[in-house]
Design a protein around this nucleic acid. Structure first.
Length: 494
RNA sequence: GGUACCAUGGCGGAGUGGUGACGCUCUGGAUUGCAAAUCCAGCUACCCCGGUUCGAUUCCGGGUGGUACCUCCA
């Protein structure tokens, strides 16, 4: 294992780039906070999931597929879910199962591998109760007015992750409102709440339901262990969610750390008409759902758009970003079609694949550029051929082999990142069928060319006009006709 | 008020103490009946002011501008 690639990650906890060293290379653990399933996932949720997915893929590449254990939870007990059940009159399980499935389907469509474990909060209530009991026994938590709170004053490192201090947090107090009145310190957070609308579980400290933060602590422990290697999530979860997870887990489990590395992705902003941008939020009414985008765009286009910026940079989301991603992928897929052509000539390759660019803090944009660099190199080979008077179809076996190796390398790397998974023909045609119309186009054009050769200009003009009409007609339906050198045309979805 | 992040061409976006990747767009050319696609060529950028240095876009300080978190939120 001397040649294990070295991965560096920016650790939000220490605020510096660090070399990643797992506790056990044969069982590398990562946790990502999953969705609360009461509605569709939006594109911001997707960014967090895609970033975690890339990290998952890189870890699998380094340590082996079986060696990486990735847990992404489903929060299926929550006030918003209870409220939604009440409003729609549907059973809670119907709502949570529906949206959990949609979430998984949508993420699969944008190339996210399924996590090793997908624990549901309702299946881990006993673990949460255990953890809360332990915290109470050891004096880290206290009961108050049918609630149980974590006492932040008992944990010295509270605020270390987010950079908040208890004094600073105290500044925002609104004493007397709601929970604040029940707490010892305003920063104390709830571990257990009383039953709501019949939703509750029996516990030694009273029938009730879990607070939000304890869920992740309990599920991470149940699926991955008491100390995990990497914890991912969006920056907005850093405080209070992740801060509270650390406090609970460390105090309950008796370890100095909960996660050794914290990886936080930056936010996604929505572009505004005036060129500025603002964060996506429901209150601003600018939420874009993955589910809706998938109706119009291929999942790989959305995935590429999400990965165009470094995960620690903010990403401005826009329609142009999607268009740009589509254009870039079209180019890659042309290369993939070429790959099959050369492969059919008998070329072979066993080049090793690597993701070195990602080892430096998941520099995804650099790897994407690397794909295009290979692509460009292949062009120079083609150009060299054409200058030698040889068509690409007539290249020597040796040249084919060279090109194949490069294409193979590029495509394998793209595949590792979750791109170029489709057949190039399927990609081009998007499941449509315009073969008949395009054949007619060719046939009319052939007549035009024949008329031209016969010197019949009137007929030539007429035939070209008819072929142009066909081309305009399919163009109106979003189809682009591409003429081949031999008079045979192909077509693709624009 | 507290905390943190960011500032590169028309747009997106890497990177580096010493000719500024890559993608998209755009311009010119080849090709085409005209297009499309493809190929070739090309235009355009490191927020401002100091400091360190032989040399800074890159390091340090200040300024300006932008953003996020401190409340449910990826």
């Amino acid at each position: 294992m001397n040649d294990t690639p070295t991965l560096t990650l920016y650790n939000s906890l220490t605020r510096q780039k660090e070399t990643f060293t797992p506790q056990d290379p044969s069982r590398v653990t990562m946790y990502n906070c999953g969705p609360t399933v009461y509605s569709y996932a939006h594109i911001g949720n997707a960014r967090a999931a895609v970033v975690a997915d890339v990290l998952f893929r890189v870890l699998r590449h380094i340590y082996g597929q079986e060696a990486v254990v990735y847990a992404r939870n489903i929060t299926d007990v929550d006030d918003r879910i209870i409220q939604s059940a009440k409003e729609t009159g549907k059973p809670i399980s119907e709502i949570t199962e529906k949206y959990a499935k949609i979430y998984n389907d949508d993420l699969a469509a944008i190339g996210c591998l399924p996590p090793t474990y997908q624990p549901k909060a309702t299946e881990h209530i006993s673990h949460m109760i255990e953890m809360i009991s332990k915290l109470m026994e050891d004096g880290f938590a206290y009961a108050s007015d049918d609630h149980v709170f974590f006492d932040v004053s008992t944990y010295d490192d509270y605020g270390k992750l987010s950079g908040n201090t208890l004094d600073a947090l105290r500044g925002g107090d609104r004493v007397g409102e709601g929970e604040v009145a029940r707490k010892k310190n305003s920063a104390d957070f709830v571990l257990w709440k009383p039953e709501l609308d019949g939703v509750g579980w029996d516990a030694p400290f009273g029938r009730g339901r879990p607070g939000w933060h304890i869920e992740c602590s309990a599920m991470a422990k149940a699926t991955l262990g008491e100390v995990i290697d990497i914890h991912c999530g969006g920056v907005d979860l850093k405080f209070p969610h992740h801060e509270n997870e650390i406090a609970q887990s460390c105090c309950a489990n008796g370890h100095e750390k909960f996660a050794n590395y914290w990886v936080h992705n930056e936010f996604l902003n929505m572009a505004k008409a005036d060129g500025s941008s603002e964060k996506m939020s429901k209150s601003l009414g600018n939420v874009t759902l993955v589910h809706d985008l998938l109706k119009e765009w291929d999942g790989e286009v959305i995935r590429l758009a999400l990965l165009k910026a470094h995960y620690r940079s903010e990403l401005n989301w826009s329609e142009d970003l999607l268009k740009e991603s589509k254009a870039q992928l079209d180019g890659w897929y042309r290369k993939k079609a070429d790959y099959f052509r050369v492969k059919s000539l008998g070329a072979g390759s066993n080049v090793p694949t690597y993701l070195d660019e990602l080892l430096d803090e998941l520099n995804i944009p650099l790897l994407l550029a690397g794909l295009d660099n290979v692509s460009e190199y292949i062009e120079t080979l083609y150009t060299a051929n054409s200058e030698g008077g040889i068509s690409n179809e007539q290249m020597s076996e040796n040249e084919d082999w060279n090109i194949f190796v490069d294409l193979d390398f590029m495509i394998k790397r793209a595949n590792l990142l979750g791109f170029l998974q489709k057949d190039p023909e399927v990609w081009r045609k998007g499941g449509l069928d315009y073969d008949v119309l395009v054949e007619e186009y060719d046939s009319v054009r052939a007549q035009a060319i024949a008329a031209k050769e016969a010197g019949d200009k009137a007929k030539m003009g007429e035939m070209f006009k008819r072929s142009d009409e066909i081309r305009d007609q399919v163009a109106a339906e979003g189809i682009v006709i591409e003429s081949g050198p031999d008079g045979k045309s192909t077509w693709r979805k624009a």
